[in-house]
Amino acid sequence: MTQPATGPAAATAAVTAIRVTMRVDGAEVAADVDRPGESLLSTLRDRLGLTGAKNACEQGECGSCTVLLDGDPVCACLVATAQCEGREVQTVVGAVPRPVRDAFVQRGAVQCGFCTPGLLVAVADLLRREPDPADARIREALAGNLCRCTGYEKIIDAVHTAAATMAGDRP
């Protein structure tokens, strides 16, 4: 794929795009990316119609587009789709246990909701690594997810509620 395209095949659409195959929320998907710098966020939303990850700052500041890439939270806007060949992507649809989502609703952690998918993914990752985090750890883990509505207190309450529910669910 690194050779310059020559001959009749060069004119066809197949060789002017980069085919990327990856798993998104458990399903195998393929995307044809027409520039090497296309972000995973653009591919998810604009090519695949998967709008769980939100597009806000496109510079890795706000965390609205947070997804798990091979299990680690990353900003989808800063990942080139072509870097995801053969890799596992989980958006808010596939990454978040039910108790986390329910806790956000119960504790009023959602206002406009734009930051919520990214926060849910970040919280799911935190609780997978640390089942009962203290406030300082929660604040550190969510430092890359901006919310301009809630003042964060309700979000931190929701993390504690989710942690308690998930602890109760464990045998």
């Binding site: 794929m1 690194t2 310059p4 395209a5 020559t6 001959g7 060069a10 004119a11 060789v15 002017t16 795009a17 980069i18 990316v33 027409d34 520039r35 090497p36 080139a80 072509a82 060949e85």
Partner: peptide, 14 residues
Amino acid sequence: MSTAAPARPAFHRP
């Protein structure tokens, strides 16, 4: 003889 092929997006994965 041959015209230049349109620039092809390339993503090298060493």
